[in-house]
């Protein structure tokens, strides 16, 4: 279980998150929603050790992550798919996948690569192209594939659905649910398409201006009379 207690964090000296308490139970999907600039990405960056943590605790199954450099966090089995700049534009797709699977051995790397390419067959055709030449959607798929390469215990997914066609978004969301159900991966999902995410999610948190304004079951937040209207843009819920 990924556990965050009384976290204050930000960038360099700038404070962005205030007193965050968050639980991400194992084998569950935890959804974080909130308006632009709320600090959702900052929260994921704090977990990865990219942002600066001023106070509080971040633990994964009891292991302290606070102030660990990102590569150590990654080695513990946390896989991060960032919102932006989530592929190496100057590297070919194959090299990208290789870097994503940096911690795997040769055998595992080959198997995993085949596995994720089967998941996104469209990428197979571009395998020797530079990632910078991909379209927005293709790039996003590559980023997700890279996230899966890392043999994750926990995945931090930041706004996956951006750039993707609605149909693909739906498939990706279903895929995420399968990751939880079939592979038992713990997932922390940050989503702008709140409705879709909350539908598959177990727990949910609402983050506004760096503070948690709501925590509870995902379906409750989806049906919350005020919050859903105020922050999620979910108008009519059937």
């Amino acid at each position: 279980m990924l556990n965050i207690k009384n976290l204050y964090s930000g960038y360099l000296k700038l404070k962005i998150l205030f007193d965050i308490n968050l639980e991400v139970p194992t084998r569950e999907i935890t959804v974080i929603v909130g308006p632009n600039g709320a600090g959702k990405t900052a929260l994921l960056n704090s977990i990865m050790g990219i942002a600066t943590v001023f106070a509080g605790e971040i633990t994964l199954d009891g292991i302290q992550l606070k102030n660990a450099p990102p590569y150590k966090v990654a080695q513990l089995g946390i896989s991060y798919v960032p919102q932006m700049e989530n592929v190496f534009a100057e590297l070919t797709l194959r090299e990208n996948l290789m870097m994503a699977g940096y911690m795997l051995n040769r055998e595992e790397l080959k198997n995993k690569t085949d596995q994720v390419l089967d998941m996104f067959p469209i990428l197979k055709g571009f395998i020797h192209r530079k990632a910078g030449t991909l379209s927005g959607g293709e790039r996003r798929m590559l980023a997700i594939a890279m996230g899966l390469m890392r043999k994750p215990k926990v995945m931090l997914l930041d706004e996956l659905s951006t750039d993707l066609a609605p149909l693909i978004t739906k498939r990706v969301m279903e895929g995420i649910a399968r990751l939880r159900d079939e592979l038992g991966i713990t997932i922390l999902l940050v989503e702008q398409m709140a409705k879709r995410a909350l539908e598959i999610g177990d727990k949910a948190y609402l983050l506004v201006s760096g503070e948690i304004k709501y925590s509870g079951r995902a379906s409750d937040l989806l049906h919350h009379p005020e919050l859903s209207k105020l922050y999620l843009g979910v108008k009519e819920v059937e």
Binding site: P70, Y71, E85, F88, E90, L91, E95, A100, M103
Partner: peptide, 14 residues
């Protein structure tokens, strides 16, 4: 090369 281009993503890849 990966680190040169995007140190943060590289680090997050381990």
């Amino acid at each position: 090369r990966a680190s040169i281009e995007n140190p943060i993503l590289a680090s997050a890849s381990g």
